[in-house]
Amino acid sequence: MRELPLPTLPIQDLGVRDLRAQRRSLRRADVAEAGARLVVAWARDEAEVREAQQLRYQVFAEEMGARLSPPAGTPPGLDVDVFDPYCEHLLVRVLDGDEGNRPVIGTYRVMTPAAARRVGGLYSETEFDLTRLRPLRATMVELGRSCVHADHRQGGVILALWGALAEFMQRNGLETMVGCASVSMRDGGHVAASLWEQLRQTHLAPIEWQVRPRLALPVDDLRRDLQVEPPPLIKGYLRCGAKLLGAPAWDPDFNTADLPLLMRVADLPERYRRHFLAAA
């Protein structure tokens, strides 16, 4: 796998209307988290993308034990893949008054429709056959590599990220979000299989949107009768109207079961629409 240079594409080629202005502006989240104010902004250069990749490495490799396969020449301590140069990277920092010490504590990676065409597909397509989503692709973004620092997982960071994502979607006429939500398989996969069994009864998407995993979690060989609580991120997606697109895929490198989810802006419940879109 060859290394791709970090963003060298002109901003106007990214397929959104006013990303340059969005990158210049910082959105101060109206939430207090761990006693601090938060600032949300899009990464403006390679150095800021590196900060996101460093946080991802801390969470995925050091905390979760993922086996990462970065491109040749990647500096140590970074989670990097071939999709990164084509994506927009949303960052949350703690606003503590010190301009030189505002660490990234949360991040999302966003791939626009134009970027997906340029790179040849979505990351999700390495795990699922997304053929049935083809009618949605013109206004569909992919969300991925979401993570929050272990010291800041009380909810404020995710709310700040979601507010900025909603603003980005509305401002650029984007209607659908798709991505994979991961469930740990440290228990062998029984929790993930049971969660799939529960959610398919209540949140399964219509057949015309359902997808197939390329490497399926062997749910028929696992327990599916456990009463499990969805992880907070998945629970948040479902509250916002997300639909489960099909059975989970198995990601052996990250040791997770990945559930394919789709969420449309039009399906946001009214209370979340007021919260996320009022100021967009």
Score class of each variant (00 low, 15 high):
residue 76 P to C: 05
residue 250 W to I: 01
residue 128 F to W: 13
residue 185 M to E: 01
residue 167 E to C: 09
residue 12 Q to G: 00
residue 260 P to V: 07
residue 45 D to W: 06
residue 183 V to W: 02
residue 201 Q to M: 13
residue 195 L to I: 07
residue 12 Q to C: 04
residue 228 V to R: 00
residue 141 V to G: 03
residue 276 F to H: 10
residue 12 Q to R: 12
residue 230 P to W: 04
residue 103 P to N: 07
residue 203 H to C: 14
residue 22 Q to N: 05
residue 112 T to M: 00
residue 133 L to D: 06
residue 148 V to M: 08
residue 142 E to V: 07
residue 73 G to C: 13
residue 258 D to E: 13
residue 84 D to V: 05
residue 27 R to P: 02
residue 121 G to M: 05
residue 68 L to H: 04
residue 237 Y to W: 15
residue 135 P to K: 12
residue 15 G to N: 00
residue 51 E to C: 14
residue 171 R to Y: 02
residue 275 H to P: 00
residue 178 V to W: 00
residue 230 P to V: 06
residue 81 D to W: 05
residue 49 V to Q: 10
residue 254 F to P: 04
residue 191 V to K: 15
residue 249 A to H: 11
residue 12 Q to H: 09
residue 95 L to M: 15
residue 270 E to P: 02
residue 250 W to V: 08
residue 11 I to R: 13
residue 18 D to M: 00
residue 49 V to M: 12
residue 255 N to Y: 00
residue 88 E to A: 02
residue 38 L to Y: 13
residue 59 V to G: 06
residue 179 G to V: 01
residue 40 V to T: 12
residue 123 Y to E: 09
residue 203 H to I: 06
residue 254 F to G: 12
residue 6 L to G: 01
residue 55 L to Q: 03
residue 194 S to C: 08
residue 204 L to Y: 10
residue 177 M to L: 13
residue 129 D to C: 13
residue 233 L to E: 06
residue 222 L to E: 10
residue 98 D to I: 11
residue 20 R to F: 10
residue 166 A to G: 12
residue 198 Q to I: 02
residue 84 D to G: 07
residue 98 D to F: 12
residue 147 C to F: 03
residue 279 A to C: 11
residue 273 R to M: 07
residue 268 L to R: 04
residue 17 R to P: 00
residue 9 L to A: 15
residue 143 L to T: 08
residue 51 E to N: 11
residue 104 V to G: 07
residue 6 L to E: 12
residue 201 Q to P: 03
residue 272 Y to P: 00
residue 43 A to D: 06
residue 167 E to D: 14
residue 140 M to I: 11
residue 27 R to I: 04
residue 140 M to P: 06
residue 209 W to G: 05
residue 178 V to M: 09
residue 203 H to P: 09
residue 209 W to A: 11
residue 256 T to G: 08
residue 131 T to H: 14
residue 182 S to F: 09
residue 157 V to Q: 08
residue 81 D to Y: 08
residue 89 H to C: 00
residue 155 G to Q: 05
residue 276 F to C: 07
residue 190 H to M: 06
residue 119 V to F: 11
residue 120 G to K: 08
residue 254 F to C: 04
residue 161 L to D: 03
residue 243 K to N: 13
residue 53 Q to C: 09
residue 74 T to I: 02
residue 173 G to D: 04
residue 178 V to D: 01
residue 73 G to A: 15
residue 237 Y to M: 09
residue 77 G to E: 02
residue 256 T to C: 14
residue 168 F to D: 02
residue 234 I to H: 01
residue 41 A to G: 11
residue 66 A to T: 05
residue 55 L to S: 07
residue 139 T to C: 08
residue 153 R to H: 09
residue 8 T to V: 12
residue 41 A to Y: 08
residue 106 G to L: 04
residue 144 G to W: 08
residue 35 G to Y: 10
residue 107 T to G: 01
residue 24 R to S: 08
residue 257 A to L: 09
residue 99 E to N: 07
residue 57 Y to T: 00
residue 45 D to G: 11
residue 99 E to R: 15
residue 162 W to I: 02
